[in-house]
Design a protein around this nucleic acid. Sequence first.
RNA 1: GGCUCUUUGGUCAAGCGGCUAAGACGCCGCCCUCUCACGGCGGAAACACGAGUUCGAUUCUCGUAAGAGUCACCA
Length: 492
Amino acid sequence: MKKTRTRFAPSPTGYMHIGNLRTALYEYLIAKSQGGDFLLRIEDTDQERYVEGALDVVFNTLKATGIDYDEGPGKEGDCGPYIQSQRKDIYKKYAELLVEKGAAYYCFCTKERLEGLKTSDEALGTGFNYDRHCRDLSPDVVAVNLAAGIPYVIRQKMPLTGTTTFTDAVYGDITVENKTLDDQVLLKSDGLPTYNFANVVDDHLMGITHVVRGNEYLSSTPKYNLLYEAFGWEIPVYVHCAPIMKDEHHKLSKRNGDASFFDLVAKGYLPEAILNYICLLGWSPSGNEEFYTLGELEKAFTISGISKSPAIFDIEKLTWMNGEYIKRMDEDRFLGLTLDTVKKVFEDAGTEVPSPETLRKIALLVKTRISTLAEIPEKISFIAKLPDYDTELYCHKKMKTDREISLASLKIIEEAFENDPSVKDDFVSDKIYEFLLGVAASKELKNSQLLWPLRTAVSGLPATPGGATELAEILGYDETLRRIRDGISRLS
RNA sequence: GGCUCUUUGGUCAAGCGGCUAAGACGCCGCCCUCUCACGGCGGAAACACGAGUUCGAUUCUCGUAAGAGUCACCA
């Protein structure tokens, strides 16, 4: 059995579309799940679309997601070069070979003539089809024209009758009438191949066994088959995937301003969470497990799990999944990812940056409470600087507090702190909690009547990451007392 | 318009002739609790429609409808 080989063949546009990334992932997984090779090939046959730095986006994305290629630019194998613009001569040779075999022909039609055809077709309300004007030019005329240097393209000579059937691994058998097939251009007048032609030639030359692509290519696949057959080449397994949608009607796209892979990373999403999520958009595993590392996917992936219908990109579910990844992440990695952000919150607020130990505590405080890394600043900024707040916050029915009780409670806490110097010596959450519970009991107050006002005074917020005593520990004895007094004056 | 494809809860989806039609996100409720979150428990919510085939259709066939793709010297 032949070794499985797949390829990711992006055209460098400078934007890593989520759908393209998913295609790359599926290609990678098909190869790896079968012990095969995954190659990277750059399809840059359209020189008008050249974008500076676009290749780096491709390389960086693959690197960030851990999708390693076995052959490709910078990793030369036996099938290089892996950049189509460097393979120009190859395509010309094969196009000419096809002419010799009678499966293609030279076409000298001008763009103007084609335009005329197109407009008259549109007037009829039908799609455009080349009228095959040059299909039966005599060899003599062709030779003369070529010698005269008249610009030409090479077109595929489609059979005029019969049908062509191809098999897709996800859609099954699809049959079309040959007469509906256009004599498409294979080699452009600039000597470069069209996508459809370069693809077939390269895929064959590179030993690609599985062609994975978006289902917008479904309708051109019969033409591919005809090409493979004309060359006498083995037809690969086709795996067409339904698109990822923005909503019911629109595909996810750059034009719609939809997030690219790096946009999502910049918004605080983890590459592994993004990859995990998009893998599940359009593919489902055999069991109920939803969390997969790339390595696990390499074992679990099956082509039969790929679905036929489009999937809407649900940022809410990605966000949830990202949060799960954060919760499951080990502490060291989390701290490595977030400590600088935490530190920056204090720098931006213009307040003194706490000790590394305190920064650590703050970061960890937030670990189970965020879904994306970008949420950190808003969650902790109150620690750096007490926000201005309304004393209405002190009123809470369930906690059985109002302004008066809160004022009394804060005074009680202040006094208790001052009267017992040992509190300051061991100012950690558990000890403070224990201490305050004792105070509450002695004053015949409910725990919440003491703790709710404390939390409010110390944070100025209706909801905070961590409880009153946790926050007190982080703020330290002095700052805690300062905020308690601030609360007292607000309430007085 | 021609050709092709798709159609299970709001979303992702399992199902591959017989099920009270999984699971997840989101939503709602309850519990836990020094707020929030985490966690636990529970709930509402779906087979586009119509004919066939069959003892029996979400599942097979054919229509209809609605969506999508394609019909370039773009990929």
